[in-house]
Design a protein around this nucleic acid. Sequence first.
DNA 1: CCTACCGATCGGTAGG
DNA 2: CCTACCGATCGGTAGG
Lengths: 203, 203
Amino acid sequence: MENERAQAHSDSRERILDQAKVLFALHGYRGLSMREIAEAVGISKAGIYYHFRDKEDLFTAIVHRYLDDLARLIDTAQQAHAAVRTQVEEIVGAILRQPAGDRALVRLAGQEMAHLSEGARSRFEAAYEEQFIGRLRDVIAAGMARGELRALNPETAAWALLGMMYPYFTPAGEEGYPPEAVIADLLRIYFDGLSAAGRPHAP
Amino acid sequence: MENERAQAHSDSRERILDQAKVLFALHGYRGLSMREIAEAVGISKAGIYYHFRDKEDLFTAIVHRYLDDLARLIDTAQQAHAAVRTQVEEIVGAILRQPAGDRALVRLAGQEMAHLSEGARSRFEAAYEEQFIGRLRDVIAAGMARGELRALNPETAAWALLGMMYPYFTPAGEEGYPPEAVIADLLRIYFDGLSAAGRPHAP
DNA sequence: CCTACCGATCGGTAGG
DNA sequence: CCTACCGATCGGTAGG
């Protein structure tokens, strides 16, 4: 989705973004040096600094590009005007079926941003809220308003959904994604709960 | 729970473990230098190396000490022989009511261990399975066997529960913990699901 | 974009 | 021989 566009003014810039994305997901922000990125891309370290002001600038470019993808993904699911459960199933499925190196960015962004500069962090938090967790929360809140979901705190419900996907945000499995049975179980728990059917608790 | 025991043969060792625990949770493994730990404890950097072989040895000591706490926590909840929902509520409540610097170790351990040596990583993974996620899975599997829970994959169910707590494993709020209303909502979703009551999906 | 470097700081260790 | 460190510095590497 990100690397299909025709090479704009710079092909190197895109190659740096793609390579660094995978490497950051594998090693973290502090665990990856600019030298290692340069070697992976096949240019000099200074070559990276031609395209990006500093390490933080490169990292935030990767993260914000990915937030754009997530925002589009949620909007696409929402435009169907289907039941909220169908919308959420589409969102969860689309995220968990991304390449592991991509979806690992969700984890990476949240955990490494705390170590960056004040400005980069506040810009990220605003974009994360506006493009990702806020849109997810709005989908859920709309389902509550329509009476399709319990009227719990939509913010808590959105974080719970994201959290359930967290164990699968590791860059480990490389290009693999969790089995469909796992995705189905997660959605079953989120919407129907783990308690045995017919034995509701505190109705 | 960890620092109440009488000072054994070394008070310094315990002070290093306690200080480094908080700092690692805040800055990550690579983001924290031995010099910074030493300054926080009030000893020299070489003083740390007297007690711990290297940085990795210190980090794994912290993590394994915390896994001991988690194992005890789960065992305590299990000994009550109550309904599985009561047991899980006790476990979730106990973890989320720990100081933020403590429960942030769950997140930290899982994400930073990938960057350590092969030996340390395999020892951690074995301990994590045996003392934490395995015990959690066993509690849930027992509930399924007793017919109190749906017969889904207990491994997936255990990771889903842990994942729902993940957003609250940040060291941000310092000593605060999530409001009781959030904990209640999480447990409601996990056991009863988010779908509106009386409208079960695919029974 | 490259070669050639810098100020500083990294994890770890020497002798005492 | 032990413990519990200190002041200084090691070889390498970080971001820029």
